[in-house]
Amino acid sequence: MSKIIKNGQIVEDAWQVVKLAEGETADAVTFGANQLLPLAVWQARKDEILALGAPIGVWLDSAEGPEAIAGDLAHFAVVAVNFPKFADGRGYSTARLLRERYGYTGELRAIGDVLHDQLFFMKRCGFDAYAVRADKDIAAALAGLNDFSETYQAAVDQPQPLFRRRAA
């Protein structure tokens, strides 16, 4: 089992990210426990997956919008958003939309190129779990969640912008 940060703690985690190899289709996947499935697999084999009766996890790649699963969110125990490169910031918008627009309340996990210095922004956008890149010191990265003690903007972790709180 690998370690992730979840709700501000380092915990053991059993979920495995399933990836389709180049040219592989959704049919190639053999289902098992605790799989984070690619969107394409979820979309193609929804009924089969639901019939398994186990907790379901899916992951969105950075180009895959939250709209694709907006109607399915009640089924998921985990939604993960992939950051193929840490400079690819689409996942921040995806996360906010999942939380703020589509009302997703389950675990929202950042996967991929997830590093110390993104965690604060990710937390603000609604992530509550972080699969920090395996070669990095996850304990050190944990501190990144709390780089700043205040924030100007409204976001998921603090829906009121500073100016609505500061005036008081």
């Binding site: 690819d88 921040y92 922004f121």
Partner: peptide
């Protein structure tokens, strides 16, 4: 300036 400073969604445009 305040809105854009550390805007969490738009740090990696």
């Amino acid at each position: 300036r305040q809105w854009s400073t550390f805007h969490p969604e738009f740090a990696f445009l």
